[in-house]
């Protein structure tokens, strides 16, 4: 290799090095945000959950499992974990059914309706959760619109209130997660050739048979993803169930907030948060594993 060649090899290496450095430079702002404002707080929270809470101080440094013991033995917290899981499960199942039908409706209807329905589905996504809560808050109580509509139409004689019931919380939660489910399933359905349905109908299959034999297998993965999306989202929300549900409806999110802002017990709030994060993570890994296994089996 001549001296000239060596010099150019060095120069070429510099170009390649610069090219290698470029993506890291581009990612720097995003990495700073994620690492400093997400990674660091998460580690901090994990550490905090082993601290102790004594007296009036926010926390005393320590290293004990006491907070986790509290979370898993105290009736209130164990109850909250079950309530959260139960509520998330029920609400997600309901969302899946309604969202599936909604997506199916939009998919099957002529294209001119499509934009209107999509606009409709965007509403819950684009309106603040607090505004939606307040909307239901005016719909369910004794002097609310529901009661007024039912009494004035003569369906019932006495005013009724569905406010502060589990049903109200449930309605509110489904409302929040409906768009996720709808859009995931619609995108899956859009990938299916509609002529397949006509072909099946031509062969004499009833709508129910077509659904069971054709649509269900094709959308199974999408349903799984949609369900887990809703489940994860519902587990984390606390405002809707606590504002619309009964006073006894304590979710994990609510207790985190309560311990943090109401009782100033940082270590316990952190421990609860950690449990919540782990549950979310488990749910994600679980659906992912299930979805890929199904994919390899069926496709």
């Amino acid at each position: 290799m001549t001296g000239e060649d060596r010099a150019f090899t060095v120069a070429r290496a510099a170009v390649i090095r610069r090219k290698r450095a470029a993506p890291w430079l581009l990612m720097l702002p995003a990495l700073i945000i994620v690492l400093i404002f997400f990674g660091l707080p998460t580690l901090y929270m994990a550490r905090m959950s082993f601290n102790l809470s004594e007296g009036s101080k926010l926390f005393t440094p320590g290293l004990s499992w006491a907070n986790y013991q509290t979370v898993f033995s105290n009736e209130v917290f164990v109850g909250a974990i079950w309530t959260t899981l139960q509520l998330a499960l029920m609400a997600s199942a309901a969302t899946l059914v309604i969202g599936y039908l909604f997506a199916l409706l939009v998919w099957l209807k002529p294209a001119k309706w499509r934009l209107i329905f999509i606009g409709l589905a965007l509403c819950p996504l684009l309106i603040s959760e607090i505004a939606i809560i307040f909307g239901w808050w005016m719909f369910f109580p004794k002097n609310g619109l529901l009661s007024f509509a039912l009494t004035s139409s003569g369906l019932i004689s006495d005013k009724i209130s569905l406010m502060y019931t589990e049903f109200a919380a449930f309605v509110g939660l489904v409302y929040l997660t409906l768009p996720f489910c709808f859009f995931i399933l619609l995108s899956i359905l859009d990938g299916i050739d509609k002529r397949m349905l006509e072909a099946a109908a031509d062969l004499g299959a009833s709508p129910l048979t077509i659904f069971r034999e054709v649509l269900l297998p094709l959308t199974r993965n999408g349903m799984l993803v949609a369900f887990s999306q809703c489940f994860i989202f519902t587990m984390g929300t606390y405002a809707t169930p606590s504002a619309l549900g009964p006073d006894t409806l304590w979710t994990m999110g609510f207790l985190v907030q309560e311990q943090m802002l109401g009782r100033n017990n940082w270590p316990l709030a952190s421990a609860l948060s950690m449990v919540l994060v782990v549950l979310v993570a488990v749910m994600m890994v679980f659906t992912r594993a299930l979805a890929t296994r199904r994919a390899t089996l069926h496709v």
Binding site: M27, A30, L31, V34, L35, F37, F38, G39, L40, P41, T42, Y44, M45, M48, I232, M235, G236, T237, Y238, G253, V256, Q257, M260, W266, A269, S270, S273, L276, V277, V280, M284
Partner: peptide
């Protein structure tokens, strides 16, 4: 890195708020 950047999106607001607040 992709997962790292996307991860906060899947975290409940309560958890993120708490983490940032105590940190």
């Amino acid at each position: 890195l992709y997962i790292l950047i996307m991860m906060p999106l899947f975290m409940p607001g309560v958890v993120l708020g708490l983490g940032v607040a105590i940190a």
